[in-house]
Design a binder for these strands. Structure first.
Lengths: 213, 213
DNA sequence: GTAACTATCTATAAGGT
DNA sequence: TACCTTATAGATAGTTA
């Protein structure tokens, strides 16, 4: 590009830190500085091993967020209502309604139980995969058709009325499966044998009527 | 301050973005960059009228936060599980305890309230997308690492304790979303393909208490 | 944890494609 | 919208107090 005369540009100019009136300029600045801010946050995290979360709302109401390791992880750790140390999710562990609520740490049986729970979960997940592969193809198609990259971007509207309930049910089952696994992981410290309910592979009754399909 | 010989310092040097081993150096860097990050966030907010929140945990476990107008305000606005009006909720606040309890039908205020509620809903949906995108990247990584093609094949075991609850929650939210859509479909028996999806996002609010996590 | 001090390095304001 | 380019304002590494 030929710059016929004088300086090719004025270069960076100093600006006062005060509200930008011009809408277009404000939008451009927001975009640039937001990127810069997230980058800084990322660098801080990497350099110093810090957990960082950034949330920004534009004047237009759009949200942008950055988090390491995850926005939610950091925010929950920050939330005083969910006091959690380095390992978050302690708040997620349901207080077992059974008898004692704390087991002596260091017991070998603990490990064994954990192992079984893990295997069980894995089994369930495998079963889920089999059941889901079918409906999954439909969903994948919907994703591809819309040029989406992530599963949650799947165009729900494009799913037929036949696939929808199946999709929802599949989600629910997987959700439950994952939750059980998470609970098992998180209750490593205190494993008070629950009243032998969750142990069986029987998936908790699915009350479909609840979801009026 | 006398500097007896040579250059007083080498000046700023370029550094690679990777974990700083030296504890002292890391601490100094954390302090400096944290200040810089907060300043950037502040400027972004002032220049662009954006609401911004930043939360950072040092490796020592200390928390530092910045927020405009307030950390809590931004985080509540971001958390869809705790719907709070962005601006002091004047619009959604319970009817003033004065005389009448409802605005006369046909009043412009009615429309205004509706409009604000709609905006809020839209905002929440957008926030969802932002959070999903974040945790989604993590899950996608897990998928890629395992060479899986579908999201439900993601190796649950490979997800960290931080990601697991996220994954479960993401599933839950998506499930709810799907259910709402299904409900809408069924209640309007024969509605042809909606022209847009963002427009009629007005759906019943979700009752999370049902799926307590 | 903070606060200088400097010499660099980086982010970015403007303007263009 | 995003991506260039330029030239400069601002951030900061290394060090000491």
């Amino acid at each position: 590009m030929v710059r016929s005369r004088g300086r090719p540009s004025l270069g960076r100019q100093r600006i006062e830190i005060r509200p930008i009136e011009n809408g277009g300029r404000r939008q451009v600045t927001f975009s640039k500085r937001r990127h810069g801010l997230f980058k800084k946050a990322s660098e801080l995290s990497t350099l110093c091993g810090a957990s960082v979360a950034v949330v920004a709302f534009s004047t237009a109401g759009n949200v942008f967020a950055f988090g390491e390791p995850t926005v939610d992880a950091v925010l929950r750790r920050f939330d005083p209502l969910h006091p959690v140390a380095a390992d978050d999710g302690a708040a997620l562990a349901p207080a077992p309604a059974g008898g004692g609520d704390a087991a002596p740490p260091g017991d070998d049986k603990e490990l064994d139980v954990l192992r079984r729970a893990a295997d069980q979960t894995k089994e369930q997940v495998t079963a889920e995969q089999a059941r889901m592969r079918d409906v999954g193809d439909k969903i994948t198609q919907a994703m591809a058709a819309a040029g989406k990259r992530f599963w949650w971007e799947a165009d729900v509207e494009a799913l037929g009325e036949a696939e929808l309930p199946e999709f929802a049910r599949a989600l629910e089952r997987l959700r439950d499966s994952v939750r059980r696994h998470a609970d098992a992981l998180l209750s490593t410290a205190a494993l008070p044998q629950p009243p032998q309910q969750q142990q069986q592979e029987e998936v908790p009754e699915l009350d479909v009527s609840d979801y009026s399909f």
